[in-house]
Nucleic acid binder design. Structure first.
Lengths: 243, 243
DNA sequence: CAAACATTAAATGTAAGACATATGAAAATT
DNA sequence: AATTTTCATATGTCTTACATTTAATGTTTG
């Protein structure tokens, strides 16, 4: 069924790949139980620890789940959007921090993607999404809010906007782009005037979505992008002067 | 440094999480060597196989790489966009196939995202990107091309469009959306007339990008989405009739 | 007879020790 | 001085063993 070319090295990686390919190709279907570790060890002619290492690799990608006990074993996991979010966010975050992606580049990507959701969100947003956005706007206006909390609320606001499009695939893709920006955003200090302006734009955005006004939402998002980029630039410049 | 609450179970998952968090927080930086497996086993007070399972989990996410030999060990890996692509594509593909995402939903997401790249691509596309697109258009016109090869060329064409935006973050996000569509697209049979129309739109798209015409590219993409969706719908209906 | 309890078997989770193998660095040889 | 050999150290793998979880089975008891 799934053979293993007796090539060079890294048996556990090879075994993991063989099983992963079987899942992707559909040979192994959701909730199907894999053979026990001992059986897999026999099948691939390796030891049980090696099989276990392979299974852990797959578990790390949420491709399988394991259960202990009599009827336990490894089962093909139904990969849900909820499960995939954290991985997507972790990967995106590390990609940005490890590759020295500039704030401009990340910001441009984020707003480009978000603007692609705006027309759909203007059309389909539910009252729930609007309520979440209004609630976050309200929170952003609270006095004594830390910069980090302000950023977190900003993320929640924008995720509600994206979710309003009612397309899980879009929400999944956007989660990475929006959340991965947070560490970069956290480097910014938001003055009271900055916050007021951002809240103003957020309100404008929520109003546009409430009125099913796609082009208004798009325009506001463009302004928001412009404002955020300039804000980051001025913060960077100021920081460079002091050092 | 990285402690392990002596809670319930799944030691290897806990250890993996501890190390992963250290990488995300920046306590472990790129190319830094982790302690040897034996040292980690001492540190966490577990056995070496357990440590190894944890390391394999991290290796599966490309967070570390291992080297054998005297100066070997586990090193924090610099996660590159190139490395992240395949994982992103695998996850996106499985998400679509396991969650019964409709063709319409996937298609809508894909084109929404792609349209967000169009203005940037119209502005920045290099001669190289244009050449790739023209080459793929030419391939799509070859007689005797299988449906699968046509789809593969379609993917290559659209990836060139996306890459033309010159934003690696966008390219990364889009790779998942575009490539994950391929299994769905492969279910479609493209008649000669369909192909001709698609090639026509592709040409129009390349022309618009060459002329730095953002709105023209956007309009064409909208038409392409419309055409693809309708095509899929009619294929599905025809298939339902015969059964 | 039925419900509560104890037993058992099968599976994963963990541990310990051993050997194989790769690889760079130091030591020995030419 | 250049080359070869040796060696220490690390991961890769195997073997065996025991712990733990869990459901099914068997047993006892009201």
């Amino acid at each position: 069924m799934k053979i293993d070319p007796s090539s060079s090295a890294n048996l556990s990686a090879q075994i993991a790949k063989a099983i992963r390919d079987s899942i992707i190709s559909g040979a192994l279907i959701v909730d199907q139980r894999l053979p026990s570790e001992a059986e897999l060890a026999d099948q691939f002619e390796v030891s049980r620890p090696t099989v276990r290492e392979a299974l852990k690799r797959l578990a790390a990608q949420s491709l399988i789940r394991t259960q202990r006990g009599a009827t336990g074993g490894a089962f093909v996991n139904k990969l849900s959007f909820e499960e995939a979010y954290p991985q997507q966010i972790t990967t995106s975050t590390l990609l940005l921090s490890m590759n020295a992606v500039s704030f401009e580049t990340a910001c441009e990507a984020r707003y480009a993607l978000e603007r692609s959701c705006a027309p759909l969100s203007a059309q389909r947003r539910s009252a729930d999404h609007l309520a979440t956005m209004r609630a976050e706007i309200h929170r952003q206006g609270q006095p004594g809010l830390t910069d980090e909390a302000f950023c977190a609320s900003d993320v929640a606001f924008h995720r509600a906007l994206v979710d309003g499009a009612g397309n899980p695939v879009l929400s999944y893709q956007l989660a990475g782009a929006v959340e991965a920006m947070q560490p970069l955003m956290n480097m910014i200090t938001f003055s009271a005037r900055d916050r007021a302006r951002i809240i103003e734009l957020h309100t404008q955005l929520a109003d546009a979505l409430e009125a099913h006004d796609a082009s208004g939402a798009d325009t506001t998002l463009a302004e928001l992008e412009h404002y955020t980029t300039n804000l980051a630039r001025s913060v960077m410049e100021k920081r460079q002067k002091t050092t």
